[in-house]
């Protein structure tokens, strides 16, 4: 299960809306082994595409250096789909390489419905998990 605070969930949804019709992407970092998404880090989609996303390579290195310096890990890795459901695509599965991360998918295919789902992607196997939204972490 993914437990995430409402403000961070809303920030991810807002980022996706804002970047539509391109895909939006980012990370929520948290203390190592805490499983708590604490620090929202929107990333630039270097592909600037409605069907693909990629962290810029220099940004990616900077991000991982920052997280290492803070003893953090990527608890959530999120991106949006702009015309299809919030479910990992074959490309998403092929690239997924953080077995401990919650892969969050958002869809902006409709204006009025928020789609926010979370998955584990390990060795090419996708497992959807429940999302619990909390006001704050206890």
């Amino acid at each position: 299960m993914l437990t995430i605070d409402r403000a961070t969930r809303d920030a991810i949804l807002a980022h996706a809306r804002n970047d539509h019709p391109d895909e939006a992407c980012g990370v929520v970092a948290g203390p190592e082994d805490s499983d708590r998404p604490a620090r929202f880090i929107p990333m630039l989609n270097a592909a600037r595409s409605p069907t693909f996303y990629e962290f810029d390579s220099a940004d990616l290195l900077q991000l991982y250096k920052e997280m290492a310096a803070n003893d953090e890990e990527p608890v959530v890795i999120y991106h949006s789909h702009t015309a299809t459901e919030a479910y990992p695509s074959r490309t998403d599965i092929a690239y997924a390489s953080e077995p401990n991360a919650h892969y969050v998918l958002v869809s902006t295919r409709t204006d009025d419905t928020d789609e926010f789902r979370s998955f584990r992607i390990v060795d090419g196997v996708v497992t959807e998990e429940p999302v619990e939204v909390v006001e704050s972490y206890a």
């Binding site: 996303y53 962290f55 990616l60 290195l61 990992p88 695509s89 490309t91 092929a94 690239y95």
Partner: peptide, 10 residues
């Protein structure tokens, strides 16, 4: 040398 997985998808 640093190795990182690309963070990307479709």
């Amino acid at each position: 040398v640093t190795i990182l997985p690309a963070v990307a998808g479709g």
